[in-house]
Design a protein around this nucleic acid. Structure first.
Length: 327
DNA sequence: CATCAGGGCCCTG
DNA sequence: CAGGGCCCTGAT
């Protein structure tokens, strides 16, 4: 559909995250479904991004160590970028990629924790990550709802093929997200033809909120967590499960842990109580457990358990997990 | 072939 | 506050 855009201008900058920094475990999350806006191999992540309306191709390359982090970032664009633009972009990247996160209070507090201690050691410097804008993350959250992973992948791909922009840079071709304004004029039927089902309506209404400027991400970042929660819940089609992900990933609330969905409940039950997934531990009990052990950092703690589980799954399938991740 | 539930959420009663 | 309905798909 859309024409391929060649990004021919390149600018290289150095990034220096706070130590410790685990490049691969931060820039690649095996539990995230594969999406055509990014690509990873050990030591390198390609990621498209739209900033101030400009489509960009990013390439992050690991040039440092956990204790002395250094990332080389190539920024590919259609035309040369002004220094002013670069400065703003880097500030945004710094926020989204959590480059300045200070993990030491967390590491210090839980280094001897019987469950978490070894994971902190193993994944020294791993941090949560969200490369996308709030709007883009909402789209991802919507295609996740009530669908198996395979279907989420299909829906996301169909949306990219219909409305995204293929960006060619550094030898890869990845899709860039569309702007809300571009999708706002599309009819619901056209979206439904992409087999997103009833989500067509949700996508339309959420898109409209952004296209009209009713929601301003940067402004929302400065609000309290509860204000953010209310603003997100007010969006049509966005409920507690999606909001939980948004508050932790997009707004970086490392203690947000109010909602456990059924499939997560089964996994936590097995992980912490070795319970039969068909007889999962009540959600209340799981919430209490996390409250007692990890208050202050519940989302971050969960992140370590979760990512460790999925990394293990990549290398040698964890038998019981296989059945619980619906591919 | 039919039926069902899925990495939720809205709406109704 | 509980429960039916929603789009589509792959599993059974």
């Amino acid at each position: 559909m859309s024409q391929k855009t060649i990004l021919k201008a390149r600018r290289e900058v150095g990034l220096f995250p706070t130590a410790p920094y685990h490049f691969d475990a931060t820039l690649h999350k095996p539990d995230h479904f594969p999406s055509a806006d990014n690509q990873w191999q050990p030591g390198i992540r390609w990621q498209t991004m739209r900033w101030q309306g400009k489509p960009l191709g990013l390439k992050f390359e690991n040039c440092g160590t956990v204790e002395r982090p250094h990332i080389s970032l190539d920024i590919w664009s259609e035309d040369e970028l002004s220094q002013h633009f670069i400065d703003g972009l880097l500030a945004e990247i710094c926020y989204r990629y959590n480059l300045q996160l200070d993990l030491s209070p967390f590491n210090e507090r839980f280094k001897d924790d019987p469950y978490l201690g070894s994971l902190i050691q193993k994944w020294q410097g791993m941090r949560p990550l969200n490369c996308n804008s709030l709007y883009e993350y909402l789209i991802i959250a919507i295609v996740l709802q009530n669908a198996t992973v395979r279907r989420s992948v299909q829906m996301m791909q169909a949306l990219f093929e219909a409305y995204g922009t293929p960006l060619a840079y550094d030898g890869v071709v990845l899709y860039g997200f569309w702007q809300p304004e571009a999708l706002a004029v599309v009819a619901e039927d056209e979206l439904r033809a992409l087999k997103v089902g009833y989500r067509a309506r949700t996508i339309q209404r959420v898109t409209a909120e952004f296209a009209s400027g009713e929601i301003d991400e940067l402004d929302l970042r400065r609000q309290s967590r509860e204000t953010q929660r209310q603003a997100l819940l007010a969006l049509y089609g966005i409920g507690p499960a999606s909001v939980g992900y948004l508050l932790t990933d997009v707004f970086h609330h490392l203690d947000e842990f109010e909602h456990i969905s059924p499939w997560e409940q089964r996994i936590y039950s097995k992980l912490f109580f070795d319970a039969d997934p068909d007889e999962p531990v009540p959600v209340e009990q799981l919430l209490t457990l996390f409250d007692e052990r990890y208050a202050g950092f519940r989302a971050l703690a969960v992140h370590y358990f979760w990512e460790d589980l999925f990394w293990r799954q990549v290398h040698e399938p964890v038998e019981w997990l296989e059945k619980l991740i619906r591919l």
